[in-house]
Structures are given as C-alpha cells and as structure tokens.
Design a protein around this nucleic acid. Structure first.
Length: 149
DNA sequence: GCCAACGTTGGC
DNA sequence: GCCAACGTTGGC
C-alpha cells in the first residue's frame, strides 16, 4: 500500500491509537478491488511515494476487512463522490495496523536491483496503483532487505 | 464503441 | 518543473 509520508506515512500510522487507522480515500476501481480482496491477518508492505526517497518503510497488517468508505458521502471531504449511493457504496476501505518499521528503509532503486523482484507489479512501468498485490516471495525478499526475517 | 481531451500519479 | 503512463469523461 502506498502513501505519501508527508501526508500519512508509516510513522503516522504508528502514532495512531493501537497503531490502527482506516485506509480511506482510495478512488481507483482496480485498487478498490484489491482492497476488497484483503483478509484480516494479511500483511502489507507500506510504501512511501512522491517523496525525496521513495521506497518501502515497513510492515502493516489488515485488521478490518473492506467496509464502505464514509468519506465518499461527505461533501466536505476531498474524497467526496457525488456518484456514490448510500444503498450501493462505490468505495471501500480497510483497517490497517502498524506492525514494524524496517531497521533499514528499502529505497526504490534497491528494489529495482533485485532479480527476484523483476516481475513485481510495483516496479512495472507506469504503475500508479496505490494498492496492489505482492507475492509471498516478494514480501520475503523485501523484508530481508529491510533487515527483518 | 471510439477516441480526443483532460486530470492524476509519481519518478526523476 | 517535466514528462510518461494511465484512468476518466464526454462528444459523436
């Protein structure tokens, strides 16, 4: 899952009560579908985007499966969607919990150097999805680079 | 259903 | 700030 560290980084998640926050504001259908496929207990790589050094900062976990994202109905929200209907919500969110910050931040160029990650979706050209799947092997590789087992 | 225009994301 | 790669919108 991607987020801009200046807006909501891994440190922000850690500081929340119980290290938990709703992952709202996803407004892309593909990303939404990946959110809806998530299950409680799924581990998440927390990626920092649009910043000085983009890369993976650490690990989070899904603690609440997909439910309607209330901000789609909130006219004052930047995520308001006039097309979303109460009886058939268009956008979902999941609840995410902080697990660990990597002892070693894993910068994007390092990810690109790894042969084991050459097929990773995150690294494919033009990738703009803020939520995307990761294989167990990719997860393991990146965790090791980050200094965790 | 096609496609141009436009907006957004995100690395650099 | 630039630009490539999308996704979305709307005219036709």
């Amino acid at each position: 899952m991607k987020s801009e560290p200046d807006v909501f980084g891994l440190a922000h998640l850690q500081q929340r009560p119980h290290g938990t926050a709703p992952w709202d504001g996803v407004r892309n259908y593909q990303a939404r579908n990946f959110l809806r496929a998530m299950q409680v207990g799924d581990r998440v790589l927390f990626y920092h985007s649009s910043c000085e050094v983009p890369g993976v900062a650490g690990i989070a976990e899904i603690v609440g499966e997909a439910r309607p994202d209330e901000s789609q109905f909130d006219k004052k929200s930047e995520f308001y969607d006039a097309g979303a209907k109460r009886d058939n919500p268009r956008w979902s969110l999941v609840d995410v919990k902080f697990i660990a910050e990597f002892p070693k931040f894993v910068p994007l160029p390092t990810l690109r150097e790894q042969p084991a990650l050459k097929n990773m979706r995150l690294l494919s050209p033009g990738n703009r999805l803020s939520v995307m799947p990761v294989t167990p092997a990719e997860f393991k590789t990146i965790s090791k680079l980050g200094g965790l087992k």
